[in-house]
Nucleic acid binder design. Structure first.
Length: 854
RNA sequence: GCCGAAGUGGCGGAAUGGUAGACGCAGGGGACUCAAAAUCCCCCGAGGCAACCCCUCAUGAGAGUUCGAGUCUCUCCUUCGGCACCA
C-alpha cells in the first residue's frame, strides 16, 4: 500500500518520534567533536514572523547537517524577554508586561515546535527570569569593582508633556510619538561600561576572525574607528586665570591654517561664556532641540554663533575667534575642533557661511586653490605644507611629527590615539528590564547591593501608563535599607539596556540550571559558538557588545575564550511593504495583509505607502507563517524559505511561489513510495551498468558533490534545494525497472532523502524508513560522492573565438591540448569565424573550454 | 551626512573570472476529464531570419583590467541595513 502525502500526519509522527527518543538533548561528551549551533534568540513580540522562520530554519539545517557529519551538536533557544514593546502593549491594553511576555513566549514556543527544529528544549531560558538576570546584576557589580562600570551624565530625549524619557524610535520628526510634544535633550546621570578600555583588542581580534563575513568585520572596525592624531590646546584667559581648550585632530599638519575654534553647545566653556549673554544662551538652547541620533546631528543644517571670546593659537599666539557650532559633537574627542576651512569640508562650508577667513596651507602639485568652491583635493594628505612658516615643504607625516614635537615642548599638545567608539551607557529609565543593583543612601552615597541580596527582583505586577518609570512610584521596590549604615535608602530605579541581556545568553545555555554560578565548566566544553546565525541588522551593536562582554568574563576567569562566535552567518532581512497613517502627531501602522491597492480593507480609506522595510512589530508589517504552516505543512514552508533566496540576501516577501516547493515534496513522496512499493531494490553492481544507468549515477554523485560543498562550505542553501530538484527530475525521467535500474534509482533516492533531511526533516524521516532503513535519518551518515562515479569518458568543451561562443566539441576526457584544438578547429562555425586569420593565442581550460584569439 | 551591502527575463533567483538566465513561480499551448481541480507533456529574455542552423543585443549607467567580466577596479544612480535608548 502506498500512503498519500499528508504533511501534518507525517510531521506529527516525526516530531513524536524525536520527543519520545529525546533526540536533540545535547550532552557534554569529552573527546567528541562538538558543534555549537546558535541562532539569535527572538524577542517575544507575539508570533513568529518570516524572519524568525528564515533564521531558525537556516540554523536547523546547519545543526542537522553537522549531526549527520558525526558532530556532537548543541542547538539551544531562549527568549530576549525584556524590552519596550511589552511596555507599549501594557499601555495599550492595561496588561502587565510580564503576562503579555509570557503569553507570547508560550505561543511562540508552540510555533517553534511545530516547525520541527532540532532544539534542546531543556536549555530554554528567558532573560526576564530572576535566575537569569541575577547574573547581569552580579557581573555588573564585578565591573563596578574593577572600574569597568562607572557613573556619569548622558543625554536623553525628554518628552516634556509625558515627563518621560523617550527611545530614539519613539521620537518622530522631533516630537514624542504619543504626545506630539517637541522633544528636548536632557542630561541625566547614568551608568556606563568602559568598552573603550577594550577598543584595541576588539579591533585587533577582528583580524583572525576569518569565519565572519568581511563586511561585518569592516563595519566593526569602522565603528571602533581608531585614529592617530594630536591632542592640542588653545590657551585662553578667563576671570584672570589661564586655562586651555583642548581639541583632537588627525590633521595637525594643517594647524597653521586654523582661523577659528568651535566648541559643542554642551561644552562647559560654552555654558560659562553664555552667562550674561542672552543671545548666545538662546542659541545654546536652540542646539538642545531635536534628536540625539548621529544621523540627525550629521544631516542638520550647520549653524554656529560667535562667542565674542578668543583663544590663542598654540604656536603663533595669534587670537582666534571662538564659536559654538551645532556640528561639533560633545561625545567625540574633546567636544571642540580647530577650524581649518582651507582643508576640511565642514569647516569650509562653515567659514563661507559666517565669512570667516580661509587660508590655504597645503599644496598638491601646485593645483589652483579657490576660496569660493570646495575641491576634493583640499582634504588630501598627499600635499606639502605652504604658508606654514618653518613647516613649509614638509609632507603630511613629517609635518605632523614636527608640529607635535613643538607643541609638546610648550606643554600644549601630544600625539594621541582616539577611538570613535564610545562607552556603553546601560541605564534605561524603564520598568521592564533588569534592575541596576545599586542603593542610594543619603549618608553613604551610591552603595552596591551585596551579592547575598541578589537578585534585586523586578516586581512583575505593575502596569506602566506612559509617564515615567512605575518603579519610581512603587514604594515597596523603591524604599530599602542602606547595606552599609542600615539607614533608610532608595533603590536605583533605572533598569539595564536589553543589550546587556543578549550579550552573554549563549554562555548561559551551557549551564542554565546552575543556581550557584553564572557559568560553569560546561561552557568550556561548548564554547565558542561554532556557527552563529542572525540578522545583518545586528552586525555592529549586539555582536560588539557580546565580544566585549566575553572579554570581560575572560578577564574575570569565568570563560576560556576571547571571542564568542567562531563563524557568523548574517542572514538577510525579510522585507515587506509598510503602510501607515498620520493621526495628528501620531503614526499608526497597518499590516500589508489588511491593505489592498493603497486602501485599508476595513474602512476603505487610503493609507500612506512607506516603501519596503524589515518585518517588525513596530512597523506592523510582519507575515504570520502560521497560515502557511497550516496550509502546506512545516516542511514546505522550510523548503520554500531556503529555496527562494540565498541566506545572506534580503528577501522581499511574496507568498505566490510557495506552490513550487509543495509540488516538489509531493512529487518526491510519490516517487519514493512508488519505488518502495515494488519491493527492496537489488544491490548495485557498478560494473554491470548500461550508459543510461551510468548517467543517472553520475548525476547522483555530481549532486552529492555540489550539495556537500554548498552546505558544508558555501552555506548556499537555495542551491542545495535546486540541485536536488534537478536530481529528482532526472529520476523522474529515468524509466528503467530492471534490477540494476532500480538499484541506481535507490541510490539516487537515498541521496535525495539524506541530503534534504536537514531542510525538510519530517518527510525525510518517513521516506528514509520507506527506503528500507531502520535507523532514523537524523542519525544517518552524510553521503559523500564517489569520485569514480563522477568521471565521464567523454566531455563537451565550449569553443570560443575571441571570447565569444562559436561552437561545442566532444572529446575524450583525457585528450591533450593539441588534440582538443584540432577537434575544435574541425567545427564549421568555428572555422567560419577564424576564416584564415592567424591564431595569435590559444587558451585551453581543462574540461571547460578552448578559446582562440585571432 | 557617515559606514556596510545589493541591483541579472513578467517574478524569486543560478552562473565559485570561462556556455548568462540552472531550479522554481507566473504565463501560453496540449493530454487526461462530462467538467473542474490535481497530474503529465511542450513552449517561454529582446531583435533579425519563411524556417532550422545561425547572427546581433542584453546582467542599474559609464569607463577600465583581462584571451575572456554578471563576477575584479574606479565614478555615478537607485534600493536596503546600521548610526550607539527598537530588538
Amino acid at each position: 500500500m502506498k500512503p498519500d502525502y499528508i504533511p501534518h500526519a507525517v510531521e506529527r509522527a516525526a516530531q513524536d518520534y524525536w520527543v519520545a527518543h529525546d533526540s536533540f538533548r545535547a550532552r557534554e561528551r569529552p573527546g567528541a567533536e562538538k558543534f555549537y549551533c546558535l541562532c539569535m534568540f527572538p524577542y517575544p513580540s507575539g508570533r513568529l514572523h518570516m524572519g524568525h522562520v528564515r533564521n531558525y530554519t537556516i540554523g536547523d539545517v546547519i545543526a542537522r547537517y553537522q549531526r549527520m557529519r558525526g558532530k556532537n551538536v548543541l542547538q539551544p533557544i531562549g527568549f530576549d524577554a525584556f524590552g519596550l514593546p511589552a511596555e507599549n502593549a501594557a499601555i495599550a491594553n492595561g496588561v502587565p508586561p510580564a503576562k503579555w511576555t509570557w503569553d507570547n513566549i508560550d505561543y511562540m514556543r508552540r510555533q517553534l515546535k511545530a516547525l520541527g527544529f532540532a532544539i534542546d528544549w531543556s536549555r530554554e531560558l528567558a532573560t526576564c527570569q530572576p535566575a537569569y538576570y541575577k547574573w547581569n546584576q552580579w557581573l555588573f557589580l564585578r565591573m563596578l569593582e574593577k572600574g569597568i562600570a562607572y557613573k556619569k551624565t548622558g543625554v536623553v530625549n525628554w518628552d516634556p508633556a509625558d515627563q518621560t524619557v523617550l527611545a530614539n524610535e519613539q521620537v518622530i520628526d522631533g516630537r514624542g510619538w504619543r504626545t506630539g510634544a517637541l522633544v528636548e535633550k536632557r542630561e541625566i546621570p547614568m551608568y556606563y561600561l568602559r568598552i573603550t578600555g577594550y577598543a584595541e583588542s576588539l579591533l585587533a581580534d577582528l583580524e583572525p576572525l576569518t569565519g565572519w563575513p568581511e563586511r561585518v568585520r569592516t563595519m566593526q572596525a569602522n565603528w571602533i574607528g581608531r585614529s592617530e592624531g594630536v591632542k592640542l590646546a588653545f590657551p585662553y584667559s578667563i576671570d584672570q586665570r589661564d586655562e586651555k581648550l583642548w581639541v583632537f585632530t588627525t590633521r595637525a599638519d594643517t594647524l597653521m591654517g586654523t582661523t577659528f575654534v568651535a566648541i559643542a553647545a554642551e561644552h562647559p566653556l560654552a555654558t560659562r561664556l553664555a552667562q550674561g549673554k542672552p543671545g548666545l544662551a538662546a542659541f545654546i538652547d536652540e542646539c538642545k532641540q531635536g534628536g540625539t541620533t548621529e544621523a540627525e546631528l550629521a544631516t542638520q543644517e550647520k549653524k554656529g554663533m560667535a562667542t565674542g571670546f578668543s583663544v590663542k593659537h598654540p604656536l603663533t599666539g595669534a587670537p582666534l575667534p571662538l564659536w559654538v557650532g551645532n556640528y561639533v559633537l560633545m561625545a567625540y574627542g574633546e567636544g571642540a575642533v580647530m577650524g581649518v576651512p582651507g582643508h576640511d569640508e565642514r569647516d569650509f562650508a562653515f567659514a563661507l557661511k559666517y565669512r570667516l577667513p580661509i587660508v590655504q596651507v597645503i599644496d598638491v602639485e601646485k593645483k589652483p586653490y579657490d576660496k569660493q568652491q570646495w575641491a576634493e583635493w583640499y582634504a588630501e594628505k598627499t600635499g606639502t605644507c605652504v604658508n606654514s612658516g618653518r613647516y613649509d615643504g614638509l609632507p603630511y607625516g613629517k609635518a605632523v611629527d614636527a608640529i607635535a614635537a613643538d607643541l609638546e615642548k610648550k606643554g600644549l599638545g601630544e600625539k594621541q590615539v582616539v577611538f570613535r567608539l564610545r562607552d556603553w551607557g546601560i541605564s534605561r529609565q524603564r520598568y521592564w528590564g533588569c534592575p541596576i543593583p545599586l542603593i542610594h543612601c543619603p549618608l553613604c552615597g551610591d552603595v552596591p547591593v551585596p551579592d547575598a541580596q541578589l537578585p534585586v527582583i523586578l516586581p512583575e505586577d505593575l502596569v506602566p501608563d506612559g509617564s515615567g518609570n512605575p518603579l519610581a512610584k512603587h514604594a515597596a521596590f523603591l524604599n530599602c535599607k542602606c547595606p552599609k549604615c542600615g539607614g533608610a535608602a532608595q533603590r536605583e530605579t533605572d533598569t539595564m539596556d536589553t543589550f546587556v541581556d543578549s550579550s552573554w545568553y549563549f554562555l548561559r545555555y551551557c549551564s542554565n540550571d546552575n543556581a550557584k554560578a553564572m557559568v560553569d565548566e560546561r561552557a568550556r566544553y561548548w564554547m565558542p559558538v561554532d556557527q552563529y546565525i542572525g540578522g545583518i541588522e545586528h552586525a555592529i551593536l549586539h555582536l560588539l557588545y557580546s565580544r566585549f562582554w566575553t572579554k570581560v568574563m575572560r578577564d574575570l576567569g569565568l570563560v576560556g575564550v576571547s571571542e564568542p562566535f567562531s563563524n557568523l552567518l548574517t542572514q538577510g532581512m525579510v522585507l515587506n511593504q509598510i503602510h501607515f497613517r498620520r493621526e495628528g502627531a501620531r503614526v499608526v501602522y497597518f499590516n500589508p495583509a489588511d491593505v489592498e491597492d493603497g486602501v485599508l480593507k476595513s474602512d476603505g480609506k487610503p493609507v500612506e505607502a512607506g516603501g519596503l522595510g524589515t518585518m517588525s512589530k513596530s512597523k506592523n508589517n510582519g507575515v504570520d507563517p502560521q497560515v502557511m504552516v497550516d496550509r502546506y505543512g512545516a516542511d514546505t514552508v522550510r523548503c520554500y524559505m531556503m529555496f527562494t533566496a540565498p541566506p545572506e540576501d534580503t528577501l522581499e516577501w511574496s507568498d505566490a511561489s510557495i506552490e513550487g516547493s509543495a509540488r516538489f515534496l509531493k512529487g518526491l513522496w510519490k516517487q519514493v513510495q512508488d519505488h518502495a512499493a515494488a519491493g527492496p531494490a537489488p544491490a548495485l553492481e557498478v560494473a554491470a551498468l548500461n550508459s543510461a544507468q551510468k548517467k543517472l549515477r553520475q548525476k547522483t554523485h555530481a549532486t552529492l558533490q555540489k550539495v556537500g560543498d554548498d552546505l558544508g562550505r558555501r552555506l548556499k542553501l537555495n542551491t542545495v534545494v535546486a540541485a536536488n530538484m534537478e536530481l529528482r527530475n532526472a529520476v523522474a525521467d529515468f524509466d528503467d525497472a530492471s534490477p540494476q535500474g532500480r538499484a541506481v534509482v535507490q541510490e539516487a533516492l537515498e541521496a535525495l532523502v539524506a541530503t534534504l533531511a536537514p531542510i525538510t526533516p519530517h518527510i525525510c524521516h518517513a521516506l528514509w524508513q520507506a527506503l528500507g532503513h531502520v535507523e532514523p535519518v537524523i542519525d544517518a551518515r552524510w553521503p559523500e560522492p564517489d569520485a569514480a562515479a563522477l568521471k565521464a569518458d567523454r566531455v563537451t568543451l565550449v569553443v570560443q573565438v575571441n571570447g565569444k561562443l562559436r561552437g561545442r566539441v566532444e572529446v575524450p576526457a583525457d585528450a591533450g591540448n593539441d588534440a582538443i584544438a584540432e577537434a575544435a578547429l574541425a567545427d564549421d562555425n568555428v572555422r567560419k569565424f577564424i576564416a584564415g586569420a592567424a591564431i595569435k593565442k590559444r587558451v585551453v581550460v581543462p574540461g571547460k573550454l578552448v578559446n582562440f584569439v585571432v
